[in-house]
Simulated assay, not measured.
Amino acid sequence: MATELELKLMVQSEYLKSASEFLDEFCLLSKSETATRQATLSLMNGYFDTEDATLMQAGIALRIRAVNQKFIQTVKTRGSNRVGMHARGEWEWIIPNDQLDLSLLSEVPLPESLTDMAWSRQLLEVFRTDFERQVWLIEENGTQMEVVCDAGKVTSPYGEDAISELELELKAGDETGLYCFALKLAKQFPLQVSTVSKAQKGVRLKQGAIEFPEKPNAAASTLALSAYWYEVWLVYWEAMFFMKDEILIQPIRHSMAQLARCLPTRFAQSLDRLDEIYQQTLQAEDKDFLSALAARKDTGITMLEIGQWLNQASYGDAH
């Protein structure tokens, strides 16, 4: 098993070319021999579950990926929460064809609700993800990461959703390096932090529901409340573009206001400035509201700065 720690960044499709060009140039100018552009991959993935989403409800994603005439069976767990990051257990096996080998799951510590394997008789392919993946190996200030740019779509009998994102996966070092490099990207082109995995996108097409973090109890610490409102902000932001519904800017602004009450002054002031910008953009009748917001760099920069501070405060020394 590998533990996967990654930072997922939402990038509108019109900015993917800028992202790719910047990463190419970064590798070209880098003094590190490990900073290189890798081969571009076309990835076809089938995700399996029962009709009533038994695996997803237990925090398990099961897929088969086809790449370069090779089939890879993967299990991912929901894993631990790292405040806007993905920290998951991952198991992978090379298999001879596109048929599931469920005997391999004996290596996975399945939740108790799944150990009898009764669910396996009702498995079906519930959705697909098909996308092109550009890959860069990056080394920055002692942190080694794999940066991927994914463009494609999720499809199911219930509809489809776009895939347009960057993922920064930690290979060596710590997550501070991921955030520092993500901030470097955010100053070059617009992006935002996302907590929605490709598997969650597929499930959402059927269920039509937005998945929110669990709300802390009344006795929770200020730090726990700030982590909660931060993730609510991220969830609503992604949902606003998925649903193409600008009315969701209202719960976004509410979550930002709640978050600002929990944070040091410098971050609260950044959120207040963002809120003023959103209000002004709403009042500008000559603009497409969602396109105008997608074009701004300050949202993503603020998301990353607060996310980095929250992770340091929760799991290390905050400064």
Rank of each mutant, 00 (worst) to 15 (best):
G142H: 12
T176I: 03
R261L: 01
V196P: 05
L282E: 09
K187R: 13
V232R: 15
V148I: 11
D52C: 13
L310F: 05
Y158W: 10
T299P: 01
S80A: 04
S314M: 06
S314A: 10
Q73C: 01
E175N: 10
E125V: 15
S30C: 10
D298S: 14
G89N: 08
D286R: 05
L168E: 08
L43T: 10
P111V: 06
T54M: 08
L293Q: 09
A186Y: 03
I252L: 12
T265V: 12
W237M: 09
E238I: 07
A295T: 04
F189L: 04
S42F: 08
A224T: 08
S314W: 01
Y315S: 11
T155W: 03
F212M: 15
A66C: 06
T155L: 11
A268F: 00
V67M: 04
C180A: 08
H319E: 15
F267K: 02
D101P: 00
D317E: 15
M10A: 13
E107G: 04
Q99D: 04
R121T: 15
L123N: 12
L9T: 10
F127S: 06
W309H: 09
A39R: 11
Q69K: 09
L137G: 00
Q308E: 15
S314C: 06
L166P: 08
F189C: 01
S270G: 05
L170V: 05
M10Y: 13
Q144E: 09
R78Q: 14
Q73N: 08
Y47W: 06
W119M: 06
Q134I: 02
M44C: 02
V11S: 04
E140N: 14
Q250P: 00
L110E: 03
L178Q: 07
L102N: 10
S18C: 09
F127M: 09
T222A: 11
H254T: 14
A58Y: 02
W91K: 08
V196D: 10
L41P: 00
R88E: 00
P216V: 03
L304R: 09
L170M: 12
E14W: 12
R133D: 07
Y228T: 04
E107C: 05
A318E: 08
S106A: 12
L234N: 05
E276G: 05
T129M: 03
C180M: 02
Q312A: 15
L114D: 07
A257R: 01
C27W: 07
F131I: 11
W309V: 03
P264M: 04
V203P: 01
T3N: 14
R88Y: 00
E14C: 11
E112H: 01
I64Q: 10
W91C: 03
Q269N: 06
